[in-house]
Write a protein that binds this DNA or RNA. Structure first.
Lengths: 217, 217
DNA sequence: TTTTTATCAGTATTATTATATCGATATTGT
DNA sequence: ACAATATCGATATAATAATACTGATAAAAA
């Protein structure tokens, strides 16, 4: 749970923000200026009250009965909240196809994160470029992080290398780690780890599907 | 929330299963036969009670005071739960680097999902292979899904194509969609959509980091 | 054999998140 | 100007998830 000008935004609400932004942008491109919570709720298949609360939690101004909220203000508030305008540099470790996908991910920089270098252990990759980002040898991780004061590390290395890489990042002074390896990472207390575990999502999907199929029979 | 032999597994517990499996496998490889909830909790930085409840929810046998749970049984139960042994076929739409990463993802089939074909609109990709999986032209999506009775579709296409692709999948009889495009998909009631939104995770990470940095100053 | 101890199962409590309800109010149409 | 209506904010309730507590018990130690 996070606070922004004495308002509280829940973790779940934060995860919904990108979807709101997407919808608001669409409306904005249609020259619409205000929108109500129920309208957005309908478009995103969410509960009306939930959307209104989320809007209230980020919006710097109040919504008006009947009219709703100002789209441009909501967008500005959400972008501010998500750190669109203050970019922080990041590095990525493991220069495989996942790294490539992440590097070329549209709207990455919008979230205040800019990938400056990639690392890999494979000598074949080293020296090459991915979307304009150089791939360096993995021994230099801590060194470069320290010199460039990098705060964010992204791990797309294979599971068996993830902990080693993680330790190097921490040694280099990295504060937040975005981990795509399907393993738990041990880190000191103060380090943030955000796990992006395909396996976990797959587990949920697979289970849900099993349920759904059972119903069909 | 899901039921398995009159036990209830929460969605959150399900997401933790892959982590448990990972740890249990490590212990098993060290020839250890039983493990207690607090031990696993410590390794994964989780609450002891949470782990015990999760174990109780999947385990076919009870844990023993002082000794804990049988590792091999827990593993068998978790694998069964996640559908390790009954594979369902899936297709992936959008044959870019993300698709490649997913296709080559280790242990994919473990979750009961096997990718049989990829699709793309780009004529350059069509006919090529990614890790042994053929890339076909996107017009054939519904047709192939229907003919092969595919139940799972994975969308790695760009945001602006996602809804079109989604509609084609639904038209082809797909029941569950794993969506990597950072947009909301409109689907009929009965279709399952699992969103894997990098933007949403990034939003959380970025916000957390901002908080953490504030503390440091 | 008795005591100690780690762990369990079950129940209670708390925290978080989602949804429902209701009176107040700005806008629209009569 | 007035009534109808969509939407708001606020408060209340419900659902879900996490954590704390307690007495019972199997295994290890004395």
């Amino acid at each position: 749970m996070y606070k922004e000008n004495n308002k509280t935004i829940t973790a779940q609400a934060l995860r919904r923000m990108p979807y709101y932004i997407q919808q608001l942008r669409i409306l904005q491109s249609e020259k619409i200026e205000t929108v109500s919570a129920p309208k957005i709720a309908e478009r995103l298949n969410l509960n009306e009250v939930q959307v209104r609360k989320d809007f209230a939690a980020v919006s710097s101004t109040k919504g008006k009965p009947k009219a709703g909220f100002s789209i441009s203000e909501l967008l500005a508030n959400m972008e501010e909240l998500l750190g669109y305008h203050n970019s922080d540099e990041a590095i990525i470790v493991g220069a495989g196809s996942l790294a490539q996908a992440i590097i070329s991910y549209e709207g990455f920089q919008n979230y205040g994160i800019k990938i400056v270098t990639a690392f890999d252990v494979n000598p074949q990759c080293i020296g090459t470029e991915i979307n304009g980002i150089k791939v360096l040898t993995a021994d230099k991780i801590s060194d470069l992080c320290r010199r460039m004061k990098i705060h964010i590390g992204i791990i797309t290395a294979p599971a068996h290398q993830a902990q080693v890489v993680c330790d190097q990042l921490v040694a280099g002074g990295v504060l937040a780690i975005w981990n795509f390896a399907p393993v738990h990472l041990s880190v000191p207390e103060h380090i943030l780890v955000q796990n992006e575990n395909l396996a976990a999502s797959l587990a949920v999907l697979s289970k849900q599907l099993k349920q759904a199929m059972k119903k069909l029979n």
